[in-house]
């Protein structure tokens, strides 16, 4: 059970970091302090992921097209391993995410949550909410004109 909670937390963390704007992510990461000593297990690498859709939204999967992704893996002196995936092309961002992930696995999850994850999540949700509110204002209110006979 606690394993699942840990997996869910890591999944949520990595998902937020992968979608964060690179410049903002790197700002917050630099604000957190100096990067810890680490060994690079997989140097930052730019590649793609094939995005799939489904026929009729619910049927057979098909290939929609690719997105660019950068990934990186690191190991801290303590042995904690971190994996970073970010959308787009940024070696620095992928390495920062791998380090944030490794440090979180190394007992610093709460501090990183407060310093980096919380603001990123709030900004992403704020952006989404702002668009949803603009969309709501464009919702059609139908009314029927009653014809006088």
């Amino acid at each position: 059970m606690s394993d699942q909670i840990e997996i869910d937390a890591r999944k949520a963390r990595l998902s937020t970091l992968a979608k964060a704007p690179h410049a903002r992510l790197l700002d917050l990461w630099q604000g957190f302090g100096a990067a810890p000593e680490h060994e690079v297990l997989r140097a930052p690498e730019i590649g793609t992921v094939m995005v799939r859709g489904r026929a009729g939204a619910v049927g057979a999967p098909f290939n929609l097209g690719e997105i660019t992704v950068t990934r990186c893996s690191v190991r801290l002196g303590s042995g904690a391993v971190g994996h970073g995936y970010v959308q787009g092309r940024s070696h620095e961002a992928a390495r920062a995410v791998a380090l944030i992930d490794a440090l979180s696995e190394d007992g610093q999850a709460a501090a990183l949550e407060a310093a980096i994850l919380l603001p990123l999540r709030a900004e992403a949700e704020g952006g989404k909410a702002a668009r949803a509110e603009k969309a709501a204002a464009t919702k059609v209110e139908f009314f029927t004109i009653v014809r006088g006979e």
Binding site: G47, V49, V51, A135
Partner: peptide
Amino acid sequence: RTTLPRFGASAPVATGAMACD
């Protein structure tokens, strides 16, 4: 695109959960 390695394929996107504009 042809110069990039492909890391894998995604799960089919769930358009029913789209944040619609």
